[in-house]
């Protein structure tokens, strides 16, 4: 597939699927479940730009997600910001925080960056809990009084459509980063940072670009969350489950291309939606944790790894 065709195709497919869903499905539960799965696809895709393509582990996906969500809360409280405005601003805030965190720690060993992201998560959580303007530990309500724009029949369907478009955007960005000159530089960093620097790759700058883009996409995925739930509180928006899922999905799907996190997120996201309804939410978290550990020890290249193996074997025979 030619690179320049990829983005139009992704958006066309997304729009067709969304149109089909809107035309045939009326059950609101479907849109809620689909929204959550899409949100995971963005988180996993964004995580993979830094984790899979660059080799740096971010344990703080929940923090970037919450930065997006709470930026929206602030904007809504200030001037009732509409969704299309909240998205880019939230993404920018999360991207800037990613840039800052990267600037402080990316010169160190990757391990320290990973620990710093965990630490940052807890610091931001503490801030939000103590910040009354956004509701502190009690949380904040976003009451949408107007009808949804563009003729949508309700907010859930509207936000589902927005989320689907954001997902297409995230995948297009990830694929662009992966196949561009930038992606080659990131892959060099992942394989050997010193050799990359000595081959002309401006490693620090590329890592900063990577953390910024990754953080911004995560913030984007969180930006519509308060509108969708009409309520946010820090314990759930900073939930470790976002961070774990953002890591588990690319690892299970495969980290070396944009398709891995997509497959992992659809698979794990769907399983979780089913288990959450049929069993309980604690059990679905256990499943994610166990799958993460099992895959990382036994199938380090994930599902895409099996696929590559199978293709390589077929080519040989």
């Amino acid at each position: 597939m030619k690179a320049r065709w990829f983005t139009p195709i992704v958006f066309t497919v997304t729009l067709l699927v969304v149109a089909l869903a809107l035309a045939t499905v009326t059950n609101n539960y479907f849109y809620t479940a689909a929204y959550i799965v899409l949100q995971f696809i963005i988180l996993a895709t964004a995580w993979n730009i830094l984790g899979g393509l660059t080799g740096y582990v971010n344990f703080g996906s929940a923090a970037f997600f919450s930065l997006g969500a709470y930026s929206s809360v602030v904007m809504f409280s200030l001037f009732k910001a509409p969704v299309p405005l909240a998205i880019p601003v939230s993404a920018a805030v999360a991207g800037l925080v990613g840039l800052g965190a990267g600037y402080l720690t990316l010169r160190l060993r990757g391990v320290f960056f990973a620990i710093a992201t965990l630490a940052m998560s807890e610091v931001l959580y503490t801030f939000v809990v103590n910040w009354d303007y956004v509701g502190g530990a009690r949380g904040a309500y976003i009451i949408l009084q107007d009808d949804p724009p563009f003729g949508f029949s309700n907010h859930t369907q509207y936000l589902f459509t927005v989320m689907a478009l954001m997902t297409a955007f995230a995948i297009a960005v990830a694929r662009y980063v992966e196949t561009s000159r930038l992606g080659r530089g990131l892959a060099a960093i992942r394989d050997d940072e010193v050799a990359a620097e000595c081959s002309g790759v401006p490693t620090l700058r590329l890592k900063l670009i990577s953390t910024t883009v990754s953080g911004a996409l995560m913030g984007m995925s969180g930006s519509t969350f308060p509108y969708f739930m009409q309520y946010v509180e820090p314990t759930s928006s900073f939930s470790l489950s976002y961070s774990v899922n953002a890591i588990a999905m690319p690892l299970i799907g495969g980290m070396h291309s944009w398709a891995g996190p997509l497959i992992g997120a659809i698979l794990l996201g769907t399983i979780q939606q089913i288990v959450q309804v049929t069993v309980s939410s604690a059990w679905n978290l256990l499943i994610v944790g166990v799958l993460l550990v099992v895959f990382v020890t036994l199938a380090p290249d994930g599902i895409m790894g099996w696929f590559d193996h199978w293709r390589a074997r077929r080519r040989r025979s």
Binding site: A187, A188, R190, D191, D192, V194, A195, A196, C198, H256
Partner: peptide, 10 residues
Amino acid sequence: FQLPRPFAAM
């Protein structure tokens, strides 16, 4: 490099 440092996955 004295000890070769290839980009091993490439």
